[in-house]
């Protein structure tokens, strides 16, 4: 994407921050609810079901409904990411050769998409060959500016920054024809691990 113009990422960081802060108002209220939740799992399959059409209509999961009650922000952030991911793939694959298999598409997400988004590739991609893929990014851009001091204090907040990328991965993969759930956890200050579980029907 050499033709695209670029701006400093600071603007984007602010925008990403605003996504969760300005929109959904009361940050304190949400962070209280999220206090214990350092590890974040998103199972917002409803959007996936809607995108995939009626074939998967059994899937409006109860767990997501309860998660929605306790915190509405993450699913929304994730669905914003989903839309962005879907559209990005449309642009990025414009002149790309046909993909061979699932792994090929995963690789595309890890290399091309990640480079486009964060200027670097995913550091490791592992799979158990049964539909589970683990992406590890040792220096995840949205977390790179976090202070190592006071980690305990801000650790719970980091979920707000990875919900959006989770959505991007899910959206990108769904545009590539892979339906999946994506969960992520922050291992250390800057290291983020995404787990992608492909849904087989």
């Amino acid at each position: 994407m050499a033709d695209a113009i670029s701006g400093p990422s600071y603007l984007y960081n602010l925008l990403a921050n605003e996504l969760s802060v300005a929109l959904y108002g009361d940050l304190d209220k949400t962070s209280e609810n999220m206090g214990a939740l350092t590890m974040m799992t998103i199972k917002d399959r409803k959007a996936a079901a809607a995108a995939a059409g009626p074939s998967s209509s059994e899937a409006p999961v109860d767990t997501s409904a309860s998660a929605r009650d306790s915190d509405t922000v993450f699913p929304k952030l994730e669905s914003i990411g989903y839309q962005v991911g879907q559209r990005l793939i449309e642009r990025l694959t414009k002149e790309h050769a046909r993909f061979k298999d699932e792994l090929d598409r995963m690789k595309f997400v890890c290399t091309d998409l990640w480079k486009y988004l964060y200027d670097k590739q995913i550091d490791t991609l592992r799979t158990n060959n049964q539909g589970t893929y683990v992406f590890t990014d040792n220096l995840f851009r949205p977390l790179a500016f976090f202070s190592a001091e006071g980690v305990d204090q801000y650790y719970p907040q980091s979920g707000r920054f990875i919900a959006f990328p989770c959505g991007i991965i899910r959206g990108a993969l769904s545009a590539l024809g892979i339906r999946c759930t994506v969960s992520a956890k922050v291992l250390s200050v800057t290291c983020c691990v995404f787990e992608v579980v492909v849904e087989r029907t």
Binding site: S9, L11, L23, L117
Partner: peptide, 24 residues
């Protein structure tokens, strides 16, 4: 090095903003 190279793609900003507006 990574932090120095602090550019982000403008398309990404636009797409994100668009999705955000849709969500609001």
């Amino acid at each position: 090095p990574l932090l120095d190279n602090n550019k982000v793609n403008a398309d990404l900003i636009k797409l994100t903003y668009g999705a955000l507006v849709a969500q609001i």
